[in-house]
Write a protein that binds this DNA or RNA. Structure first.
Lengths: 203, 203
DNA sequence: TATTGGTGTTACTAAACGGTAACACTCCCG
DNA sequence: CGGGAGTGTTACCGTTTAGTAACACCAATA
């Protein structure tokens, strides 16, 4: 809120300054994703971001809050990706799902991928009270909602079942990535999705 | 090895003694599954097992070794379950897969389920050197092998793709359990498996 | 020029982490 | 009866955990 005074408009505003807070956040995000949330300490984050723990706690109330924010951010990126992939096939839900699966496979098979950050957090955060917990539940619920809607829009006979099945394939793809790096069962994901849609659209 | 001397056969052998080591192992297994591996310390395990840290280290060389043993044990239980479910349908691979999925859904939707212990460890243990890592890779590879074989045995047109797709459904079922407790997308798992098999067996 | 907000730095807390040394005890087996 | 294996107990080690207090500094802003 206390950004700049409202009367004096500074023309050269929006400076490129690499805010400490942002550096910490980006560093933390990378570390959480790569090594896991529980495996990364506040000290490590601060140090890796080129600052110290004190500056960390001036930007974030606690580690748990940071984690929640990290998950929220990952979620936003995810929907950005989703919307971008889906955009070229507006009004063609089946093609949209196909595009999603193809892009998902490519992305998830990339060298540094560790699957879905939020799915991973699902396992690392069992505590109901953790501030990140509701973020992650909301995200996966939205994912389910969207897939079911896509299934409905394409005229599937049993849209909820198809939507849920697609979600299982997606989530399965993410987690098996952590075991089979590349060449795992994920290679069947896109084909399986097509087969499932074919079956639900037959006649 | 140094169980009982070989010459003197004790008739009242096989005592019900609750070996400390066993108590520790069972306690640890329960805690690892419920709260996560990284979230549970050696001290907590020993204390919860009614003993102390020193006795822990007299039974296990390190926590990592315990974890590896835990995963190995979970793996063995898993194949026990698998073989039992599959047994009544010997020679009918399609029925075997159906039985597996139905039992899996039931088991995974149970009150205290936290999905697959080994799949969860997949996320908690990214370190290549961790002794539990190879155990978990071997387990999931075997899972893939079995599903592909089942697909081949049932005469699927593209058995590897079908097997892998079934695995994605299974793994997806396990992990989504951690977000949607009950009534999640897992409710579509068995139907999706059938649909996939139908499609691969058509003609 | 005086103030102030953002930052760096050092030192600290209390607890938990994985792991070990040393000693006392009990109970079973030869 | 004597010995050894298994266990309980207490006190440690050094490191890391999340989180805080106090002080110094610099740059921009009023």
């Amino acid at each position: 809120m206390s950004r700049t005074s409202e009367e004096t408009m500074v023309p050269a505003a929006a400076p490129v300054k690499t805010r400490v807070r942002d550096r910490i956040f980006e560093t933390a995000s990378a570390l959480f994703y790569r090594r896991g949330i529980r495996a990364v300490g506040v000290d490590t984050i601060a140090c890796e971001a080129g600052t110290n723990k004190m500056s960390f706690y001036r930007s974030f109330a606690s580690k748990d809050v940071l984690v929640a924010e990290y998950l929220g951010d990952q979620g936003r990126s995810y929907w950005d990706w989703w919307d971008t992939v889906v955009a070229p096939y507006e009004g063609k839900p089946r093609k949209q799902v196909e595009a999603l699966f193809e892009s998902c496979v490519t992305k998830t098979c990339a060298k540094d991928s560790r699957g879905c950050a939020i799915a991973n957090a699902t396992i690392e955060i069992p505590e109901e009270e953790h501030p990140g917990r509701k973020v992650l539940i909301e995200h996966k619920s939205e994912s389910r909602r969207r897939l079911r809607k896509l299934a409905r829009d394409m005229g599937a006979r049993d849209p909820d079942v198809l939507g849920d099945a697609l979600m299982l394939l997606l989530e399965g793809s993410y987690i098996t990535r952590l075991t089979f790096s590349t060449g795992g069962p994920i290679i069947a994901a896109a084909k399986a999705a097509k087969t499932l849609m074919d079956a639900h659209l037959r006649r």
